[in-house]
């Protein structure tokens, strides 16, 4: 019962898919294709990311994170957060648990926003594709503007959010 309740969202999705197969088999076929592709990617990428998160949690002391990207880390902290974000690692949603444990270990909110922003918008393989299809001026301009925006958003969020507003993923 508890398991059914925990997984009610995916179960609901499954029900929608079943209904769709009766109603609009065309769309259902296309949706199922996309979903299966996506699932394959997830099954490959997600387990290692959570193991890495566990290792980070166990091995890296809080002081180290605070020193690197915590309060008082200044420009160096911005740089490190950006660098961690640009590593080629996959879709943004797998960065959320990592960001959560970094925050719990004393990272500044502004740096976490930069980390997520870089992860989402400024990936190196992604930039190569962007240059190819949209040209160099477009890519450079978007890169500079996005980085600026992310830094500003981080500053604002740090002012507005209190530590109690954050949830902690590693303890229940």
């Amino acid at each position: 019962m508890i398991i059914i309740k925990k997984f009610k969202a995916p179960l609901l999705m499954a029900a929608v898919f079943i209904l769709l197969w009766f109603w609009l088999p065309d769309i259902a076929a296309r949706s199922t294709d996309v979903a299966l592709d996506y699932l394959k990617e997830m099954v490959l990428v997600i387990p290692p990311v959570f193991v890495l998160m566990g290792l980070l949690e166990i091995w890296v002391p809080k002081e180290k994170i605070t020193q690197l990207i915590g309060s008082g880390s200044g420009i160096k902290g911005i740089f490190f957060s950006f660098l961690m974000g640009t590593l080629p690692t996959g879709p943004l949603y797998i960065a959320f648990p990592l960001a959560g444990s970094l925050l719990a270990k004393g990272a500044r909110i502004s740096n976490i926003v930069i980390f997520l922003g870089a992860w989402a918008a400024i990936k190196i393989p992604q930039l190569v594709a962007e240059m190819e299809f949209l040209g160099l001026p477009f890519t450079i301009l978007r890169f500079v503007l996005t980085l600026t925006a992310v830094i500003i958003i981080g500053q604002i969020m740090e002012k507005v959010i209190k530590p109690t507003d954050l949830t902690q993923i590693t303890n229940d």
């Binding site: 999705m13 769709l20 979903a35 299966l36 996506y38 997830m42 959570f50 566990g54 949690e57 993923i169």
Partner: peptide, 25 residues
Amino acid sequence: AFIVGARALWKMAPGLLAIVGVVGL
């Protein structure tokens, strides 16, 4: 570390699975 990772994964699993469905739709 593996236990910590597995516990976090278990916590996120329903959301991750639901995303697969929503993206497909």
